[in-house]
Structures are given as structure tokens and as C-alpha cells.
Amino acid sequence: MNVDKSDKTPMYQYIMNDIKHKIETGELRPHDPLPTQIDLAKEYNTSEITSRRALSDLVQEGYVYRIRGKGSFIQEKTAAAEAKPISTLFFAHLNLELNNFSHPFFSEMFDGIREVCGENGVAFHLWDMGTDYQLPEDPNAGIILLTTTAADSFDIERLTAWRQEERRMVTVHFYYPHLGIPYVIVDNLTGGYLATQHLISLGHRRIGIIVTGKSIMEINQEFSLRLQGYRLALTQHQIPFDPQLVAFMDEEQESVKLGAEGFEKLMELEDPPTAIFATSDYKAIGAMNAARAAGMRVPQDISIMGYDDMKLGEIAYPSLSTVNQNTRKVGERAAEILLFELAGAGQQLIKDEIVPTLIPRASTGPAPQ
């Protein structure tokens, strides 16, 4: 493009003004892609630094949004909308202990949120709602809402009220479809299926599972779905479901101790399993410790499968087969929904389920002959 610029307008500002003009005249429409900063630099015969500055400032002014790995796009402008563009995202939780956030489920999710916020000039902060369920006062803030607590209880009337106030929010990890609140979750059913299918593929037919909760009627959403995935994999391979192979552990917090106790419960059976799917890495490592104490070799005598892909699983001995929940993608999608997709959704419920990834390692092997 031959640029005829007779005034002293900085080139980055010239690029911005030209793109704004194209938006105003309809040449560029909402959600149309923009050229990359490399291509913009070539088009306007300038440097990549200049084109990067132009794109960054267009994002700051609300004309453009970015999606990681996809590019820059024209922001949707609705004349009727009174709400200002979101400039801050809060991850709101209810009295969770800060050490919970060191778990990769949260740390990787935060990385995903930060990435999207950083690319779009949006601040990101952690927010404790406290016992009074207090949200940030800024009505234009975006809220990524974690509704689980240690007891997995949440005052649903608060959610209803926030929905009626049209707070800009999306829930993660747990969801409430009847309220129409956008949500992003991990597909735990598929995760449970992948873990069990992996063990079946190694020849195991007698597979135990250790689940946190009092009973099949008293477990939370995530563990219930992992158990459903376990049952689905068995069904598809014509393996009868045996309730004795489900070890329910009546505790609220994940721990190595739970895994050890679950392992011992399963090994007391007259026909014990040759493989165990522990529905968290903590429990899986506890099961491996208990197996070692019982004189059993992992995986030669018993295969053990975890869930979460914690860093310590890589250096456990043997290294732990597990399921990565891809929560970085959960964070990315939650931020993208708040920043780019709410305005054009109307009454349609926005939802996304992130598929986990199987991570096979040394703790699982062929069924003993």
C-alpha cells in the first residue's frame, strides 16, 4: 500500500485512524480478522514495532480484540449497550485457602487467563468473596466465578441475584444450566473414560476405582462424572460393573492418606483388582505407597492410574500415568467469553467443555498373566 501522508501524524496513529475509518464505513465488520502485525507493516510500509503499537492501542480503545493463536479481530460495537468494555477480570472464589491455588488445576488456569488478558490490555486479579458473598463494586468488571468450597456448597440464590443484575460472569469447574450463566468446565466424563480405557487397553479387566465422597449419591460433580466415564469404558468393552470395585472415601480434601486407605480396601476383596484408577494424583501416589508397603510391584503386580497431572507425578517412582485436565484452555476460554462473546450471545447459553489428555507413564503396564 502506498501511503500518502502529508501531515505529521505518527505512523502508528495513521494505521489506527485508517482501520477506524474502515470500521465506520462498514469495510471492516464485527469479528472480521485483521492482518498480522507483519502483514500490516508490509501493507503500510512501516516497521513491525509500529504496526504492533497500532494493534495494541486499538485493543486498548476497544476497537480490536485478540484470541491467542488465532489473531486480531474487529470488536463488536452495539450502540444500545450502555456497559463499558471490560477492563478488569476477577477470579472470584469463596474463602478458599491460598495454598489450594498452587494446584496445577488453578495455576495453569490462571496462566491461560493472564495470557488472554495480557494480549488485550485487561487487568487480572484474584478476589475472595468472603462470607458475605461480596463481588467487586465495578459493574463493568468481568467475573470468572468458582462456586465450589471445601464442602462444595454455594448459596444459589446469590447466583440468581447476580444473574438478574446482569453481572458479567462465567463459572468454571461447576455449572448451573438452569440459570443461563455461561460456563467452562473440564469434560470429566471423558477424562474418566480415557483413564479407564487406557487400563483396559493394557489387558486389565478387573479395575478398581478410588473416589472421594460418601457414596454414589453423595459425591460432587467432578468425581461423579469421572465415575460415569469409568462405567462407560467398562460397558463399551462388555466388562461387568462390580460395585465392590468402587472404593468411596468419606473425606472433603484430597490426600495421599485417602489413596492408601482406598488401596487397602480394594486389596481386601476376595478377587482384588489388577489395576486401580485413583481419581486424583494425591490418591494415586498414596495407592502406590501402600502397594510398595504391601510388597507389590508397580506396575508388574498392580497398575495405578492418577488424574490431574501434578508435577510430582513426573518424578514419582515409578512415574505416574495420569490425565491432564487442560485447565490452561479453561482459563483462556473463560476470559475470551467474557471479553468477546457475551455481547453477541443474546439469550443463548454460552458453554464450553474442555477435553482432557491422557498422559501414560510407567505406573501402568500389562495385566499380570
Rank of each mutant, 00 (worst) to 15 (best):
G259H: 10
S319V: 04
G344A: 11
F105N: 05
V330C: 07
I302T: 02
K70G: 00
D308N: 13
T274L: 07
T147R: 00
H204N: 07
N120E: 09
D271P: 11
M249F: 07
Y133T: 01
H31C: 07
R168Q: 08
P368S: 01
F174A: 09
D309Y: 10
I304G: 05
V186E: 11
D301V: 02
I86C: 10
G262A: 08
G142D: 09
E119T: 00
R114C: 10
Q197A: 13
E76G: 01
E48F: 02
M296G: 10
L40D: 04
I86R: 09
S6H: 13
I19Q: 03
D138W: 08
L135A: 02
G346Y: 02
D152E: 15
Q348A: 15
E353A: 14
F241N: 11
E97H: 10
E24D: 13
E252M: 14
M16H: 02
N100S: 14
E24I: 12
A290Y: 07
Q347R: 09
L89T: 03
V64E: 04
K214D: 11
K351S: 09
G118I: 07
F73P: 02
R205V: 00
I143D: 05
E222Y: 14
Q13D: 15
P356T: 09
F91N: 05
Q164K: 12
Q253H: 12
H173D: 14
M16A: 06
V170I: 05
I337A: 06
G313S: 01
A334W: 09
A79D: 14
L96P: 00
I239M: 08
D155Y: 03
G180A: 01
T36S: 15
D242G: 08
K311G: 13
F91R: 02
V3N: 09
I354C: 08
S280F: 00
Y65F: 15
V122S: 03
N140R: 10
F124E: 08
G262H: 11
P85I: 05
H103M: 07
L245D: 04
P240M: 08
S280K: 05
E336N: 12
E115R: 08
T160F: 06
G331D: 04
I337M: 14
L98S: 15
Y133C: 02
T147H: 00
S51Y: 03
A275Y: 10
E108L: 15
F277V: 08
I276N: 08
I207Q: 00
T50G: 06
Q236M: 12
S153A: 13
Y183M: 01
Q164Y: 00
D57E: 15
R29G: 04
N289C: 12
E353N: 07
I185M: 06
D309N: 14
A151D: 14
N188K: 11
G118L: 00
G346T: 02
I354D: 12
H31Q: 12
H31E: 13
S87F: 08
K77E: 09
K265C: 04
Q228V: 02
N326F: 04
L145F: 11
F154M: 04
P318V: 10
T212W: 02
T364A: 13
E268R: 14
G118E: 01
H21P: 01
H93I: 05
D32M: 11
G191T: 06
T322K: 00
F174V: 06
I276V: 14
P182N: 06
F106D: 12
S102E: 09
M310H: 06
P368E: 07
D18A: 06
N140D: 15
Q348E: 13
D18L: 06
Q238F: 13
K77H: 15
